[in-house]
Nucleic acid binder design. Structure first.
Length: 830
RNA sequence: GCCGAAGUGGCGGAACUGGCAGACGCGCCGGACUCAAAAUCCGGUGGGGCUCACCCCCCGUGUGGGUUCGACUCCCACCUUCGGCACCA
């Protein structure tokens, strides 16, 4: 094979794309003698075309997959489609004449083609789409497993409703101060009967096992930790005065219970109506409750929202003192957290303090800070620190940390309360009032109630012919053929569940399906899952830090408990890539700063696009797009071409290993080659710093250009051959097409992507001379070249003997000499 | 408000364990090639000073302190930007 003079990326990329596909170069065996490596990038939602974020994600993943393959691993590197979801349905509603399924499939075709153009080394035989009945059958099956285990349940609750998406949302999908994660519309509350997963049962395990995830960014773990929001404290029951009722509160400060001067309920607390019935305050409280509930989450939780409240007329008794305190309702108490009721301790809680001052409620100090006397009358803020318990009966004198334990013990002994751990995590709402999702496999029978669809009847097929109208009800409810079913239990007439599942359910298990994507008898082949999982490297955007990653962890733990998988965590290592920016801002249609991957690939080729995106910034950081930077990478590949292509004849004729001891330029050239191998290997494997790996390769090319200038007679052909071969091998994961073309064009048989990763020879790195930096009083004043490996004393002697050192230290007293072997000598003189 | 990350040339970024700040790339300047241009190749390029040729000196990694022979790197205080959470009792 001969190589053209000019680098024709179009022809080269097209050729290898076809050949690799024909040869199924990236097909992976299920089991192999080689160690396994599961390299996974987050699969995309097929929204239309790939954007730069995708290109970045898949380029990063491909470098790792190819690198690991060359290092001798059996690498599973699959791709698929998170294919259910709202945009497809919204497109159908908007345009009327396009079906979500057709829209989705068309997008998949486009994006699959783009990924192939990009040259990503996927095993396409394993491609999956979550909207395929062969896939969602198992999504439904998994729902049933959770249902049978009591982890899927239906309940009526105030849920988040997005009026724009006309569906409910999980808590995790409500962001900021109460807006929809997808469309940024303000979310409303609605009372609805919905399906939930009991993720709260797993709160503690999800928290504890974060410790196992040493390969995850600290940032993501902290976000999950905060989201789970564990807090320790106590539950205390306060009897209502004159009624046979009690109010249970959750507090993290049971040591302050003697400082309670009032009680507050959330406006929506079920007891409110009972408390006010027949009282003078009833009307006022009702209108207050209505007023607060009317306000959206956004207004109610705004940072500067003022705390307001109202006396109910009722009182309750402090179970430890017997003292009677008023019960209020207030906007700052949330029904969803804890018990929806709070004991008011103004002296030791800032919110309670502000509230008490506003409504002239008494402040009672029960914790005295060391060396200070708090006076309720003059306090300007709550004291929340440590101290000694006072005004607290038998607990007086106890340090408050001990007090916490003592009070809990006391409560438990007297049956007044108990120690309790509380979590901020809520159960996962999975119902969606939409068509384009996996139907929830449940039927409702008037006689039998809620009946799960038997496994043999799966999948519950999504009908094709439905009317898309944004009614707030699933379009399936208007589809009689779907709606009417026979009850699996009694055979009588029944009604199907018309809600579909949150698409996060589909994406919580897809990485298991890749191991046996066409398996028909089970969700996956257990032996294969046990072999491949957990995923060794997962790569994706940090926006999934909570949603997808938490749900996937939850699913994995459930599957583990069900004996369906053997791993307790799904993803061993996680890499969260930064955003792609243009002019300092995230690329978006509205800002008009989008760079289209299509155009870049058309103009410069896939290799250049990949190289630039990997070179411009380290993966975790945001990347600033630069057209000129792309230009530079294109120039570099051309430079590689012009360097290697003319060697097509010469290279195969050269010996592959340099013979004997090398000297001069040949020795230097070989050292550079091996230094580069070391640097690139470490940058990829240890640090994921692809940008510095690429610059090291560039330096090797620069070095080869220099080497080429040396008279031919002085050059060692074997050194040249080794350098060029190493260059191509190192470049292969980054720019797979040009590396392949040049590899096979320089007389090599077989794909470069099946070659072993080069290893460096430590002996080649050794320099015979090293440059020692000479500092005087910490400032660089000279440099001395000394033989490698001389003793520290000799190094110091040589440095001190330098004319310049003598000159600069003349008339001064040398107080100290600090030698760093092989590197530096600092002389302290005055 | 709380939690987290980041501040380095004209720009993207590098400096791995406290040891030559600015690798590599872009841009810019100069040279070679050319009738000319593009492309390419070679060289220069943080700021300031100086007998602006050589040499040499000073300043310089958000700000102000500190530790150290030596600090982009460690410590304290602060400023700015970005991301997450948001009355969590």
């Amino acid at each position: 094979m001969s190589l053209k003079e000019r680098y024709d990326f179009r022809e080269i990329e097209k050729k290898w794309r076809q050949r690799w596909a024909e040869q199924e170069l990236y097909a992976v065996e299920d089991f192999s003698a080689r160690p396994k490596f599961y390299c996974l990038e987050m699969f995309p939602y097929p929204s239309g075309k790939l954007h730069m974020g995708h290109i970045r994600n898949y380029s990063i993943g491909d470098v790792l997959a190819r690198f690991k393959t060359m290092q001798g691993y059996n690498v599973l590197h699959p791709m698929g489609w998170d294919a259910f979801g709202l945009p497809a349905e919204n497109a159908a509603i908007k345009h009327g004449n396009i079906h979500p399924a057709d829209w989705t499939m068309a997008n998949i075709r486009t994006m699959r083609e783009q990924l192939k153009q990009l040259g990503v080394s996927y095993d396409w035989r394993r491609e999956i789409a979550t909207c395929h009945p062969g896939y969602y059958k198992w999504t439904q099956w998994l729902f049933l497993q959770l249902y049978h285990r009591g982890l899927a349940y239906r309940k009526k609750a105030a849920v988040n409703w997005c009026p724009s998406c006309t569906t409910v949302l999980a808590n995790e999908q409500v962001i900021g101060a109460g807006v929809c994660e997808r469309c940024k519309t303000e979310v409303e509350k609605r009372e609805l009967e919905q399906w939930f997963f009991k993720i709260t049962d797993y709160a503690q395990r999800l928290l504890d096992d974060l410790q196992l995830l040493t390969g995850w960014p600290e940032k993501v773990k902290i976000m999950q930790e905060n989201w789970i929001g564990r807090s320790e404290g106590a539950e205390i029951r306060f009897p209502v005065a004159g009624m046979n009722e009690e109010i249970t509160v959750f507090t993290t400060r049971p040591d302050t219970v003697f400082g309670v001067t009032y009680m507050v309920l959330a406006p929506e607390h079920p007891l409110v109506e009972k408390l006010i019935a027949g009282r003078a305050q009833a009307q006022a409280v009702r209108s207050f409750v209505r007023e607060v509930s009317r306000l959206s989450e956004i207004n109610r939780t705004a940072a500067d929202a003022e705390k307001t409240g109202l006396f109910t007329g009722a009182s309750c008794l402090n179970p430890l003192t017997g003292e009677q305190v008023p019960i209020l309702v207030a906007n700052y108490v949330l029904l969803e957290y804890g018990t929806g009721a709070v004991m008011g301790v103004p002296a030791h809680d800032q919110r309670d303090f502000e509230f008490a001052r506003k409504y002239n409620l008494p402040v009672r100090v029960v914790i005295q800070p060391p060396g200070e006397e708090l006076d309720p009358a003059t306090m300007t803020e709550a004291y929340v620190g440590e101290g000694i318990m006072v005004n607290s009966g038998v607990f007086n004198g106890l340090p408050n940390q001990e007090g916490i334990r003592a009070v809990i013990k006391y409560l438990e002994e007297k049956g007044l309360g108990r120690g309790r751990v509380n979590y901020r995590l809520r159960d996962w709402l999975i119902s969606r009032q939409r068509y384009w999702g996996a139907p929830i496999p449940i039927v409702y029978c008037d006689r039998c109630g809620i009946v799960p669809v038997p496994e043999k009847d799966l999948p519950v097929m999504l009908p094709y012919d439905v009317a898309f109208k944004p009614t707030g009800q699933s379009p399936l409810a208007d589809c009689p053929d779907f709606l009417h079913a026979d009850c699996p239990a009694c055979g009588g007439p029944a009604r199907r569940e018309t809600d579909t599942m949150d698409t996060f359910m589909c994406s919580s298990w897809y990485y298991y399906r890749y191991t046996s994507p066409r398996e028909e008898a089970a969700a996956w082949d257990k032996a294969k899952v046990d072999h491949w999982l957990p995923v060794d490297q997962y790569i994706g955007g940090v926006e999934h830090a909570i949603l997808h990653l938490l749900y996937s962890r939850f699913f994995t733990k459930v599957l583990y408990d069900l004996g369906l998988v053997s791993n307790v965590e799904p993803f061993t290592n996680l890499l969260t890539q930064g955003m792609v920016l243009k002019d300092g801002a995230k690329m978006s249609k509205s800002k008009g700063n989008i760079v289209s991957p299509e155009e870049i690939i058309e103009t410069y080729g896939a290799d250049t696009a990949r190289l630039f995106i990997l070179f411009a910034a380290p993966p975790e950081r945001d990347l600033e797009w630069s057209d000129q930077g792309v230009e530079g990478c294109s120039r570099f590949l051309n430079r590689v071409w012009r360097l290697v292509a003319p060697l097509a004849e010469e290279l195969p004729a050269a010996p592959s290993i340099p013979a004997g001891e090398l000297t001069g330029v040949n020795r230097e050239m070989r050292r550079l080659t091996h230094q580069t191998i070391k640097k690139v290997t470490e940058d990829i494997a240890v640090r994921f710093n692809f940008n510095t790996a690429v610059s090291a390769i560039m330096e090797l090319v620069n070095g080869l250009y220099q080497y080429r200038e040396v008279p031919a007679a002085d050059r060692d052909p074997a050194v040249l051959r080794e350098a060029v071969e190493s260059l191509l091998l190192l470049l292969a994961p980054f720019a797979p097409f040009i590396a392949e073309e040049l590899w096979q064009g320089t007389g090599h048989r077989g794909s470069i992507h099946k070659q072993s990763w080069p290893e460096y020879d430590p002996a080649a790195l050794v320099e015979e001379e090293v440059t020692i930096v000479v500092q005087i009083n910490g400032r660089v004043r000279d440099r001395v070249v000394v033989p490698r490996g001389i003793s520290t004393d000799e190094m110091v002697d040589r440095v001190l003997a330098q004319p310049r050192v003598r000159q600069l230290t003349e008339g001064k007293r040398i107080k100290k000499v600090i030698p760093v072997p092989g590197k530096l000598v600092n002389i302290v003189a005055s």
